[in-house]
Computed example of a mutant assay.
Amino acid sequence: MIVSPKMVAEAEVLCQYLCVPRGAANLQIDDVLDLPPSSPSPSSPILQAVRACPEPVGAEFVATRFESVVDCSDIIQEAVIESSTIKFVPSIRSGSYAEIGLRKSMEDEHIRIDDLSAEVGSLFRCSLPSAFYAVFDGHGGPEAAAYIKRNAMRLFFEDVDIPQISEINDIFLEELENCHRKAFLLADLALADECTVSSSCGTTALTALILGRHLLVANAGDCRAVLCRKGQVVEMSQDHRPSYLPERKRVEAVGGYFLDGYLNGVLSVTRALGDWEMKFPDGSPSPLIAEPDFRQIILTEDDEFLIIGCDGIWDVMSNQHAVSLVRRGMRQHNNPQQCARDLVMEASRLNTPDNVTAIVICFSSPDHSEAFPPPQRRRFRCCSLSEEARNRLKSLLEG
């Protein structure tokens, strides 16, 4: 059977309004559905399949009979999302805030560029909205983070020959990812040669590049990026810490070890730029590496904003806490700068011991940002049971 988008929508209506839990007595479909005006028509193949079932319809039927329809709906849903994203073009704006916190010195740095083409000129031309953001969380002194920020445009766009956009396709995105990987590694090598940066000084790094509706996040360390999609968290990075099992295995496979939760008894992260006293000569596997992990995503109208921040936030705040705080602020004043400040202030209130830096990147302009409607209470309709159904339910409850 060919599943059309209309049939998928009908199946979703049934799944949404069917209120029979798994294991409950079977009830007639008309008894348990309070279908809205958009409900399937009487001639719908979906409803016909339900009504043609010889037994009353319950949760088990939906779980088995509609399994193939739901699987097909996932594929169709992806196609619908892709179609909607073609029309969606983000209107990018951002705000940032940083505080020294309880530390004696400020070792965080960040970059916030809402119009990348205007910033880098001939190095990178893009007719689509483009933006670049980064957070660098230094350790062993502020020099490494400050150096990377100061030279970021050269390191990430000039020295790596970033590809010019002719068409954003899989080949271009792969080249872009390779260029960003190369930029992280070149930045790492540059710190080794920089006389103003100690070999015991380093920095974590997280970057977010937006080209039209494409978002690319690269991360080495424990800064974090979190996307808000209709109020829900979409994780856009993975912390490189000893507690992350794949990192533990990688480190131990090349002779590294952990002492009291620190890599080789020194660092709380397993990836960073710099820290050359802990790295092996070029070409040798090292417990501490600078190579980033990547996450790519196609933005849609459902994507409201991206938060990137140093670990001073995430040490005391869950992803959902941060997203909910920013979303609430955007409802009240629609100001990403104020939301970034609120994040930092909340982390301070929760007694974070670290420097704190946050960037909030919104994907819609103030004129086009929609007010979030209050959640609607679902209405349930009382249903009458046939005598046979009541007997079945009674026997089920009595065991």
Rank of each mutant, 00 (worst) to 15 (best):
S4V: 02
I210H: 03
T270G: 04
Q77N: 15
S369P: 07
S243K: 09
F136Y: 12
D303R: 01
E277P: 08
L206I: 07
M330W: 03
C310D: 04
P90K: 01
V266N: 06
H180I: 15
R154H: 13
Y244G: 03
E10Y: 06
V8T: 05
S268C: 11
C53K: 06
G95W: 04
P285H: 06
Q337I: 05
D282A: 13
D311F: 01
A220T: 00
Y133F: 15
P336Q: 10
G256C: 02
P5D: 03
R65E: 03
P373E: 04
I359E: 06
R327C: 07
A98I: 10
P285Q: 08
G58Q: 03
E247R: 01
R250D: 03
H214K: 13
E301V: 08
N178E: 14
D114Y: 07
K104G: 15
D303F: 00
K104T: 10
C179R: 06
S122R: 05
L306G: 08
D137E: 05
P21G: 12
S268H: 08
L14Y: 00
S384A: 15
G23N: 14
I168D: 03
E78T: 01
K394L: 12
M106I: 02
A205R: 08
A134G: 14
I168T: 09
N219F: 00
E301R: 14
C19R: 15
S365G: 11
R125V: 15
Q338H: 15
G256Y: 00
Y244I: 01
E370R: 15
L227R: 04
E12K: 14
V13N: 13
D71K: 13
L350A: 09
M153Q: 14
F380M: 10
E346G: 09
Q238C: 12
S4I: 02
E235A: 11
F124Q: 02
R229M: 03
L185T: 06
P37Q: 06
E346Q: 14
V217L: 05
I361Y: 05
S43M: 07
